[in-house]
């Protein structure tokens, strides 16, 4: 190990030792594996479905019982994407008129089919978040992944249509703003922030949950757009020097 590494290791060792001691103390008081006693969790499992009309209790927690925390998480997402954009946008040289077409038709067709499948699957996971496992967070990443397939299968020029900053930045900001706006709307109506505004709907269908459904979609939009912005920034900072060298 080099000198710097040795210094780092020497500083880390006592800190890690202290941490290990704390960890051991914590673990000795923790419950045995498989014997969970938390009252909050068991209570929620029992009352969430009749109370919130959502068969997915985890999604009900994320968007309703702990909806405020989700707003905080969304802003972590937003802030770090802003950080990435600030760092990487100035690394970009002007794009010019590069083209990098994928000439094989089989790849383009396959890419089109796969992209549709992935985007629809992502939308499905996001939409049914209140009924089956899933929700806005998972679906959003899947949708963004599907759209990136456009670049992989079709080349640079079609990608710029999807990945332009004029399209994605408002979408991402809109998603974050929609979440806060829904909360504020409840506030204006005289109820606590993020209180459920619409009727609760029928359990087990797409209409269940009231405001949770809208919040779910706001998060899906935000996560998908944020991921796409990330991929765009990384791709652009990589591609443009690469293409201009051809």
């Amino acid at each position: 190990m080099s000198g710097r590494q040795r210094v780092r290791a020497w500083i880390a060792a006592p800190v890690l030792g202290l941490f290990a001691a704390l960890l051991g103390w914590g673990f000795s008081g923790a419950p045995a594996f498989g014997a969970f006693h938390g009252a909050y969790g068991e209570l929620l499992n029992r009352i969430a479905v009749p109370q919130r009309h959502s068969t997915n209790v985890v999604t009900a927690i994320v968007f309703d019982y702990r909806g405020f925390d989700t707003m905080g998480e969304e802003f972590i997402l937003f802030a770090s994407v802003v950080g990435v954009v600030l760092l990487l946008r100035e690394m970009r040289e002007p794009a010019g008129d590069q083209d990098d077409p994928v000439t094989s038709d089989a790849i383009r067709l396959f890419g089109l089919v796969m992209m549709s499948v992935v985007v629809v699957a992502g939308l499905w996971v996001a939409a049914f978040g209140l009924v089956t496992p899933g929700g806005g967070f998972q679906g959003g990443v899947a949708i963004a992944g599907g759209i990136v397939l456009v670049f992989l299968a079709a080349g640079y020029r079609p990608w710029t249509r999807f990945g332009s900053q004029h399209l994605l930045d408002p979408l991402e900001g809109g998603g974050a703003a929609a979440y806060v706006a829904l909360g504020l709307a409840a506030l204006i109506a005289g109820a606590p922030f993020l209180h459920n505004l619409l009727g609760l709907g029928v359990t087990g269908t797409l209409k269940s949950g009231g405001s949770m459904t809208l919040l779910n979609w706001a998060v899906a939009l935000e996560v998908a757009a944020a991921n796409l912005v990330l991929y765009t920034e990384f791709l652009e900072s990589y591609l443009v020097p690469h293409l201009s060298r051809r």
Partner: peptide, 29 residues
């Protein structure tokens, strides 16, 4: 924990390889 499994699946197969591969190729080149 099916929700967590879904999100981990999507993230570790789609999101992470994309950004890390691009970062590596950028520093390599």
């Amino acid at each position: 924990a099916p929700d967590v499994a879904l999100s981990m699946l999507v993230v570790s197969t789609v999101a992470y390889p994309l950004i890390v591969l691009i970062a590596i190729s950028r520093t390599r080149r």
